[in-house]
Design a binder for these strands. Sequence first.
DNA 1: CGTCCTATTGAAATTCTTCAACACTCGTGG
DNA 2: CCACGAGTGTTGAAGAATTTCAATAGGACG
Lengths: 247, 247
Amino acid sequence: MSSNARKDIHNSEVPLLCISCEARHRGICGALTPTELIELSKQTSKHSFEAGRPISADGESIHRYSNILHGVVKLAKLTSDGRQQIVGLQFAPDFLGRPFQARSDYDVEAATEVQVCSFPKDSLDRLTKLNPELEHRLHAQTLKELDEARDWMLALGRKSAAERVASFLFFIAQHIHPEKNETGGGVHFDIPLSRSDMADFLGLTIETVSRQMTKLRQGHVIEIINNRTISVADMAKLKSVSETNIN
Amino acid sequence: MSSNARKDIHNSEVPLLCISCEARHRGICGALTPTELIELSKQTSKHSFEAGRPISADGESIHRYSNILHGVVKLAKLTSDGRQQIVGLQFAPDFLGRPFQARSDYDVEAATEVQVCSFPKDSLDRLTKLNPELEHRLHAQTLKELDEARDWMLALGRKSAAERVASFLFFIAQHIHPEKNETGGGVHFDIPLSRSDMADFLGLTIETVSRQMTKLRQGHVIEIINNRTISVADMAKLKSVSETNIN
DNA sequence: CGTCCTATTGAAATTCTTCAACACTCGTGG
DNA sequence: CCACGAGTGTTGAAGAATTTCAATAGGACG
């Protein structure tokens, strides 16, 4: 195919910003031809956000899309009286933004320190019309987000507090150590959320999250190094706790 | 465009099955050129399912996709110990099936009597590669499902039993009377789910759903004609109950 | 060393579930 | 025509899980 031929360019032609970017291969930019990538990169800019800072707010009109370069982003919904539910967590090299729609339906906030590469909505929307592979990648990410959302619906609707917290830790562990799937290995990692964010993600209160963390520690399922860092000796055990009611 | 010219065909050329099908315009088939529609229709078949019957099971390999012609389909997830959570409800002319993946991740069951029009997975996957508008429609439906899933995450994680039941009734009322959005009008409709399915959708027990229905009746928010049929005098009031904690 | 912020722990209050009994509808068969 | 049983939904009371309120702990920083 001609697009394959065009991909065979010198590395020096790859925009500087993109050279070490995960999104260039695994993210949506992997769908772009070198020409398209160069074109788009002329309009990109890099932004950083401290943990807790809004990236965009619900109802706000959005003129730019982004790729996450580094960090964890939370998508949240609010009730009119201020209760909050985190409805998605995104990691590099995820795409941020709602295609085909001017407004954002969620609050988008940095959970940790976050770096994104952003570009004008119009540019990508135009490219999407020309390059079907781009929409395919966006669609694939949407399907992944849908699967995750539905997994969490099961947790929110049917799992106990203990199972939810264990499910969350398992989810995070898998994102950080994808290889140790359920091969029973040990894992050591940072939780990218505060207890408050964990509560908002799990549909619980801070206190309940804290109590369940303590129980997991007492049950030797996890070791709490400090508030943010934990160690899991046996992933299979954690997974089992995440699916078993009554202790 | 040539595809527009080709759309200008005689009605007699539209496959019989498709003539009165919602999916032909509002569903994914609206993306097909007449030639493609005729081609695909040669491989379609119509199927009926009684309420409660499985359409496909979790983990089962799927060889056909479907469009819903009539009825309501529920997508459910199960924990290993048998707890169930309904993670999606689909109505005509929604598309049923998971693109780019051989297995189904959910139990798919008829909630009411259901009719679908099904066709081989391969055929649609092939068409998707040729016709980008098709993937665009699939993507649009996936985004809609994602929005709904996230709305329910907010309900499951942060709303009280009373709010959840009211939210559910509001959701159904809107699907059946899309025009009476929140213009305060009255509405009369059938709930497409049993109390048991409502409970599995709302992350509650049958008894709690029943009690909340009674409370809504006593609060003159709804009138219960019979188990399945209710009447809402004031949609704005129902909506308000669906977002307000503490009564 | 005090302050701020985050997290933990305890006890009481609340919500929802569980268990149990009962009611209603509908179809079948005596 | 009525009795019976199955399926579905309702209601009550006791129990369990989670929240709420309140107090304390621990770490980071000036």
